[in-house]
């Protein structure tokens, strides 16, 4: 019996891994096609940065294109790029000439620090808000608290960032306005990025708390004379943990997407800014690298969630 169960689990894991690889391949292929359909030649764009778009000698442009392999038929380019990607070789940036992997390695710590601090902040604020809303007496206070998450998701990150800068950096010089160095440079961007994420977490947590509190077990526990704090901590919050884990792929995606604007406003070097510039200049190898990195993260989180479920919630996986 035990052996059959293990075989079943191994089979399921193999299927999930195959699905993950398929997702990565699809992301790679779709990005490759989109970048080639978009107008403009990356080499000409790189050269036109110098002066205002008056074109270079076509023969010399052609020679550079050949150097980057951009003169070959599309299927050949695709085959080569895919073969290299499988060997973790993403080539070099057309703009800077730097290896894509080294570029990603340079910018990854900045975004990782930003996203994890923002996530920790968002988790704290989001859950606190959900709990406060849950316990607030019916009426104006509860309505106001319940409206906060909607407000948080609606506020434009760009505007929030500039506002925080204006107050906490330009007016009161508490934090630097730019750069990647030190925790002080991290504070304002992390707060900016945490606002929409905490709003989303508060929404998820609020809904889960309401659902769980309405279930018979909650009533039964309360009837046994368990206090409100204990009911929340021991019986209701674990449900929140499960729903947050379910949504963690989405939350990570939101943090990455939010880093594009946040890193630009706060002049931080990171994945988001790199992605934006690479798309703007049609720097195909860099875009492929960033997309595969993001897709791998997404896939890894979802895989981890699937594996964690049975541990978190005994009802799943039976």
């Amino acid at each position: 019996m035990l052996r059959r169960e293990m075989v079943r689990r191994a089979g399921a894991l193999a299927v999930r891994l195959a699905q993950s690889v398929a997702v990565l391949w699809a992301a790679f292929t779709v990005v490759f096609l989109i970048l080639h359909v978009l107008p403009g030649d990356p080499v000409s764009i790189m050269l036109s940065q110098s002066e205002d778009g008056l074109s270079a000698d076509p023969a010399q442009v052609a020679a550079l294109r050949a150097r980057y392999g951009l003169d070959r038929p599309l299927p050949v380019q695709y085959g080569i790029a895919l073969y290299r990607a499988l060997h973790l070789d993403f080539g070099q940036s057309i703009q800077t000439g730097q290896p894509v992997l080294a570029t990603l390695r340079d910018v990854l710590p900045g975004t990782a620090a930003l996203a994890s601090v923002a996530f920790a902040l968002a988790l704290l604020v989001g859950i606190a808000l959900a709990v406060a809303t849950h316990h607030a007496p019916e009426g104006a206070t509860k309505a106001a608290l319940a409206a906060l998450p909607a407000l948080g998701t609606a506020l434009p990150t760009f505007w929030v960032g500039l506002l925080l800068l204006q107050v906490f950096s330009f007016h009161w010089p508490l934090f630097p306005a730019m750069g990647n160095d030190g925790w002080r440079a991290l504070a304002l961007p992390a707060a900016t990025l945490a606002i929409p994420t905490s709003a989303r977490i508060a929404q998820i947590a609020g809904r889960t708390l309401a659902d769980a509190a309405a279930q018979p077990f909650a009533t039964a526990v309360a009837a046994r004379g368990v206090g409100r704090a204990r009911l929340m901590a021991v019986h209701l919050l674990p449900n929140v943990a499960i729903s947050l884990v379910t949504m963690s792929g989405l939350i990570a995606g939101n943090l990455l997407a939010g880093s594009v604007v946040t890193e630009t406003v706060f002049s931080r070097d990171g994945i988001g800014r790199l992605a934006q510039l690479a798309v703007q200049t049609k720097d195909i190898p860099v875009v492929e690298g960033v997309v595969l990195l993001a897709a791998s993260l997404f896939v890894a989180i979802n895989l981890a969630v699937d594996l964690l479920y049975p541990l978190l919630d005994p009802r799943i996986g039976k």
């Binding site: 030649d41 000409s44 002066e51 205002d52 778009g53 074109s55």
Partner: peptide
């Protein structure tokens, strides 16, 4: 347009008027 669109138009000579300067 985006810079890449402009570059593409310039190469294909497929534009009417373009706005530019040169230092």
């Amino acid at each position: 347009q985006t810079i890449s669109q402009m570059t593409a138009q310039l190469e294909s000579r497929n534009f009417q008027l373009r706005f530019a300067n040169l230092t």
